[in-house]
Structures are given as C-alpha cells and as structure tokens.
Design a protein around this nucleic acid. Structure first.
Lengths: 177, 177
DNA sequence: CAAGATATGTCAATATGGTTGACTTAAATT
DNA sequence: AATTTAAGTCAACCATATTGACATATCTTG
C-alpha cells in the first residue's frame, strides 16, 4: 500500500482549540455540498439566458414579494446599490421585471415580476423543489418540520429585514398560510 | 395606511407552470438565508487575515482530508487549476499549508495543513458549530438524524469525487456502487 | 528506450459580481 | 426654503471565476 494511494480518511479527534468542543464536521460539509448542488441546477438554466446567480436572486424575491422597493431588495441581498443596479437594469431591459412609482411616495420604485419573470422563477423553483422532494421523500411530517425549524434556527435574528420578518414570522405560526 | 407602506406579503397560489406542482418556496428561501449567515461568520474572521471564502474552502478540505492531491481538490471545489493556483499559492506562502511529493508518484503534490492552518480551520468550524448547535438545541436524536439525511439527500449522486464518497459513505453506512 | 499520457504549474486575457466614493435628480419632510 | 431621502449613475478597483496555450517533471506503455 503506497503512501499516495492509501485511502482518504477524514482527520478527527485532536480538536486543537483550547476549549476542545466537538465540532460538527459532518453537517458543515454536508451543507457545503448540499448548497453547491442546490444552486447548481438553476445555474445551468440561467446560463442559457445569459444570466447569473445574481439575476436569480433578484427576480426571485421580486416575484415572491411583489411591490418590493429597491431599498428592501438591498437589505435582503446585502449588496450595494451599484451592484444591484447592473443586474436590475438588465432584468428591466429584457422585460423580466417592471417598475412602478409608489403611489404615496413617488420617489420609490416598486418592483414587480412580469409573466416572463414569473415563468423563469417558477422554472428554477421547480428544479429546486424536485431536489427537496427527493431528499425528504421518506420523511415523517415531524422530520419535515424539523428541516424547517433547523434552517430557520440557522438564520441571524438581529436586524431582520422586511422579507425575513415575513419568512420567520410564517415559521413561528403567526402567519401560517 | 398608504400604498407604499402596506405590509409585504408573499405571492402564493398561482403556480404558473403548466404542471402546477406545489413549489417549496419556504425551504428554498430558508436555505438561502441559512447559508448566507452560515458562511457569514467565517467571512468576518477571514477578512482579518486578508483571506476570502476560497481560502476557507481550500484549507478546510486539506485539513480534513490530509494528503489530498491537487487534482482531488479540483474535483471537490469544482473550479479550474488556474483559479485554485492563486489561492493555494497564498496559503502555501503564508504557511497554512505544506506540500509533499507523493512517494509512489512524485508528480503528485500531497497537501497538508500546518498547525497554523489547523488553528484557522478549527476557529472557523467553531463558529459554524455554535450556529448549528443553537439551531438544533431542542431537537430529538431522530430530528437531528433527519437533518443529516436531508442534507445528504440534497447532494448529487452522479460522479461523486473522493471526498464526497467518504462523506456519503459515512452517512449511508454503505458506499454507493 | 522512445513515445505518449498525466499531474502540476504558469502566463495571459476576459467575465461576473462584488466593493468604495462622489455626485445627480426628484420628491418628501421639517 | 432647507434638508433629507430614494434612487440612479460614473469611475475605479478587487476577488474569484473562466478559457486557452504552453512548460516541466514524471509515470506508463509499446
């Protein structure tokens, strides 16, 4: 058995931090691979439209939360106005999103997905839904619930933006659909 | 209440795809926010080292799978040799990783984390572990198990690289044929 | 042994999506 | 009328990714 071809084994034990807590290597790595493949499906489709992940995020949240303001979107995506501007402009120019001035505050630009935008979002969400359904195929209702509570619990609670409040609120029962 | 300040509500119902499957908007969005915050903790620390996410991924997998070859790392990270090269060179130059020629094949460069590299990885994994532990604090053993099975089930099974085989193997109990 | 394949590294050009900083315009607020 | 706010834009820069071409050392095969 040569050194180079010996089988790969994960390092373990020797937690070199002073505290020496048990680190959750398994979940950390599973999350990395799971997310990689979760966004991988949309990536392939987006390529064919000449779009990237940034476009997906924008059109997704605009579709899901119609009338979202530009400032809201900046909070949700945690990027700068300049960075959003480039992507948003393309989506507007190509007819995936439309703007509408706010009725009570005409400085605001409320964003809405067009039918074209909705179709794209639905296609991408379909791929991701298929993957999720495959993963939880044999799960009990309680186990499915645990997935939601786990993911919800992973999210920072300080300074929740408007969209996050809705999502976390729905998960706590107050706004269940 | 003015139009602009009316409460945000998610769009629902009208699945515009012909098939009209129920889309898992909740899990899709929870995954987005959970992953954003999950990688956010390390990002802050990495900033102070002048490193980015790319460095984290490299030093993480090298630490966890000592003796990993460059080619293995390319498979795992799914990036090109050129892109890896830049990041890897920095980690080598700054003493977070060392190389060693393979004993049976001296073309190979086997990668190992130094004590400095291990310390960094452990610090970052500690932050992520804290977040995970917080999220599953009140979970039953079965529910914790469900998290692992869910994440594992989200990962593509075609063309598993060496690292993934180890991870999925540990999770299934049996290696994929 | 010669020829070819493989593992790694490197040079160069390019794309995407992020950043900071400065500034403009229009509209709301004080 | 003065100030603040929401949005947009110009410019420069950075990190991380890409493709393509090529170099070097080493292993494998005919």
């Amino acid at each position: 058995m040569s050194d180079a071809s010996r089988s790969l084994e994960p390092a373990h034990g020797h937690e070199s931090t002073g505290a020496g807590q048990a680190l959750r290597w398994d979940i950390i790595e599973l999350l990395f691979f799971a997310y990689r493949d979760f966004v991988g499906d949309p990536d392939h489709v987006l390529d064919q439209f000449g779009f990237g992940r940034a476009h997906h995020r924008v059109v997704h949240f605009v579709h899901r939360y119609p009338g979202l303001k530009v400032a809201d979107l900046l909070d949700v995506l945690r990027i700068t106005k300049q960075s959003l501007g480039r992507v948003l402009k393309q989506l507007l120019d190509e007819g995936y999103i439309v703007q509408q001035s706010g009725a009570s505050d005409r400085r605001q630009r409320l964003l809405f997905a067009t039918a074209k935008g909705e179709a794209l979002v639905a296609q991408l969400a379909g791929l991701q839904t298929d993957r999720i359904n495959r993963a939880i195929r044999d799960f009990s209702p309680d186990e499915v619930g645990a997935i939601g509570r786990f993911l919800s619990g992973m999210i920072d609670r300080d300074d929740p933006d408007k969209v996050l409040q809705v999502i976390l609120g729905a998960h706590n029962g107050t706004k269940k659909s």
